[in-house]
Simulated assay, not measured.
Amino acid sequence: MRATTGPQQMAEVLAAALAAGINHIETAPAYGPAEAFLGQALSQWRGSEPLVITSKLLPGIALEEGKAQLRGILQRLGLERLDNLAIHGLNRPEHLDWALRGAGAELLRWALAEGLVGQVGFSSHGELPLIETALASGRFSFCSLHLHWFDQTRIPLAQAALREGMGVLAISPADKGGRLYAPPEQLRADCAPFEPLELAYRFLLDAGISSLTLGAAQASDLDLAKRLTAEEGRWLEPSHRQALDRAWQAGQSRLSASACQQCRACLPCPNAVPIPELLRLRNLDLGHGMGAFAQERYNLIGRAGHWWESVNASACSGCGDCLPRCPHNLPIPELLAETHERLAAAPRRRLWG
């Protein structure tokens, strides 16, 4: 999704990926010209090892439009068959209904019956109950979820999916996982002698996550992947575990008694404030020096459609409904007000709408 400057850039990224031992390439029509550039790069590839290619379709489209879009994907990629077709952003209940009972269900059945795709799955930025329902539906063979070192909420769902034989892909552990390719100095010091991104990758691989998306824009973005794939599964040595624990404890120490432990007992909020997610951004800002990332994410709230939260901390009325439910006795309304004051700023545009 990031190698979109031209075909040469994509060809260089693909070559570096193959040299790193990567064999799964994911793209989507929504990623601008990336899919067409990938098709051009694939047409020049002369390797003998098979590649696994995934592309995605946005939910909510009519059956005939979906058929036309899938044919367009295959044409751009120069393929007769797509290994994996994912619903791109199964984020709301109506998206799941479309995929299980509506035109989406017909589209997926048609694509499988025609032999145009090998298996179907979904990516989701949605709420935990929605993802759990999708995983339990029996419709999908794989899923792509936000699984991050600094956001471990969905990891139990991912591990349950793996136990059922599903494929699991972590969405953007480098970027959405905290802009870890450009970490703040405080976090780098806490993680020393390792880089934060390496620890984040190792953490997810050790948790059993079967694929990580790397979002490479240039060949050098895959240097770390090349080094890790050579290790053949030795993801967390004692020194890595010590560094992960040291970084986590440093954050907890800075936050002191105000750290939100992400138990979600505060929910539901009468004003639909996503309390745990907002306080997670506060944790990153104050605990790990990740203020730039926290501010970027906070200011996307209400501006990214169904891809992200729609209500920020200013919607807290101070009703106190959450207070007796918090097992850590956090002053949640006060913390939300502080979070808004610290993080609210001029918005930044998402890379993809």
Results as ranks from 00 to 15, higher is better:
A200L: 01
R246P: 07
L187Y: 07
A219F: 14
E232G: 09
A225N: 00
L236H: 12
P238H: 07
S256V: 05
C191E: 01
L187G: 03
R234F: 07
A182N: 04
A158Y: 03
A207K: 15
M166T: 13
Q186G: 00
R154N: 15
D175L: 10
A230R: 02
S211F: 11
R254S: 04
Q242D: 14
K176M: 10
R234V: 06
L228E: 08
F203D: 02
L199A: 00
A174H: 07
P173R: 01
R234M: 14
A158M: 12
G233H: 05
Q242L: 12
A200E: 01
L244H: 02
A230D: 01
Q249N: 14
K176S: 05
T153G: 04
S172E: 15
A192G: 05
K226W: 07
S239D: 03
P156Q: 07
S172T: 10
A189C: 09
G167H: 09
P173W: 06
R163F: 11
L180Y: 09
G165F: 14
A247V: 04
A160Y: 01
D223Y: 01
T229C: 10
G178N: 08
G251V: 10
A217C: 05
A219I: 13
I155T: 11
D245E: 15
A230T: 02
L169V: 13
L205K: 05
E232D: 05
G167A: 08
G165D: 13
R227Y: 06
W235M: 07
R188G: 07
C191I: 00
A161S: 13
L157W: 13
G177T: 13
M166L: 14
L222M: 10
P156V: 14
A174Q: 11
P193N: 06
R227D: 02
L205D: 05
R163A: 14
R188F: 14
G251M: 12
A207I: 04
E185D: 10
A250W: 13
A200Q: 00
L197F: 07
E237N: 01
